[in-house]
């Protein structure tokens, strides 16, 4: 079980690292946001989602897509503008979706996914699905009006939304603590009458428990929940970020507590053979190499199709 978790997290890490290589080598162009160091939140939260549940992510969403079951080859292909990409190259790194996997899209407008998730939960009230709608956003997004409106809307109407705030301490280049007077972001939600918890997002067990309770509440018609998951990105905000805002020593500390290092230590302490632990990384990297190579061989999306899909 724990080894499966490690493999799941390594899949995300290996995907992100391969994306970084492809971005630096050329096949991927444009702005790319990686989630290295935050894998446990995606893996833990998605482990509690059922097929009928809806997930809304952000531009930092590749890992959430993988955790939801979107095939890596289609993600690589999307980022490289291939016809086989999840959206045939229309979405790109920061705005792709795969509703067939319950992945209802990244969003590049901070906070914009939250009201849409409210609508998914609203639909669930009428379609009998007992759908939980999960919207994940960053610490900075808590300061966006759309998020405040969405939270109160869901609370007032008793809608089954799971608000997941991935607090990685920074909004782009600015520390969240400089942009709020109340550092406990979960209090925004509790002030609105939403059950809210703050958890160590690097701890898969905590992420699992918090999301299980939230999804159960949503499915039972008990309304929204809010989870503030503390985590850290161990890479820049985007590929190319010089990260000058980081205080000395911070990254070194983060590399100790980040979820893959943490689970690896736990497994070894539990007596799991080193070989089994290392196999997770190796296997994940092999899978991603294979997926990326296949995507690289896929044909580019045809410019002649660029106008398709605008209207019904």
């Amino acid at each position: 079980m724990k080894l499966d978790d490690l493999l799941s997290m390594w899949r995300i890490r290996a995907l992100e690292e391969k994306i970084r290589d492809l971005r630096l080598e050329g096949p991927i162009v444009g702005s790319v946001h990686l989630a290295n160091g935050q894998e446990s939140v995606a893996v833990g939260a998605c482990s509690q989602l059922r097929p009928q549940d809806a997930l809304y992510a952000t531009y930092r969403g590749h890992g959430w897509a993988v955790a939801r079951g979107v095939p890596p080859r289609e993600i690589f292909a999307e980022l490289m503008g291939r016809v086989t990409g999840v959206n045939g190259g229309r979405g790109g790194s920061a705005h792709f979706s795969a509703p067939q996997h319950g992945f209802h899209g990244e969003n590049s407008i901070v906070g914009a996914g939250a009201p849409i998730a409210v609508g998914a939960a609203l639909a669930g009230k009428y379609d009998g699905s007992r759908r939980a709608a999960m919207t994940v956003f960053g610490d900075g997004a808590i300061n966006q009006g759309a998020v405040a409106e969405a939270m109160n809307f869901a609370a007032a109407l008793g809608l089954g939304v799971v608000f997941v705030c991935e607090n990685n301490r920074y909004s782009e280049l600015t520390p969240i603590d400089d942009m709020v007077a109340e550092p406990d972001l979960s209090r925004r939600a509790s002030a609105l009458g939403i059950p809210a918890v703050r958890i160590d997002g690097n701890d898969l067990a905590q992420v699992r428990t918090a999301t299980r309770l939230a999804v159960e509440a949503a499915a039972a018609g008990r309304g929204p929940s809010f989870i503030e998951a503390h985590t850290q990105r161990i890479v820049g905000h985007y590929i190319g970020d010089s990260e000058q805002y980081r205080p000395a020593g911070e990254l070194e500390r983060d590399l100790v507590v980040e979820p893959i290092a943490r689970l690896t230590r736990e497994l070894l302490a539990d007596g799991v053979p080193t070989e089994s632990v290392e196999r997770c990384e190796r296997r994940a990297r092999e899978e991603m190499e294979t997926a990326a190579a296949a995507a690289l061989r896929d044909p580019l999306a045809d410019p002649a199709t660029a106008k398709e899909h605008l209207y019904a």
Binding site: G81, G89, R90, G91
Partner: peptide, 16 residues
Amino acid sequence: LADSRIPSAPQLAAAL
């Protein structure tokens, strides 16, 4: 811009 949304893939965007 040809009346359209703008796709991420550069070769698609260039066509519009």
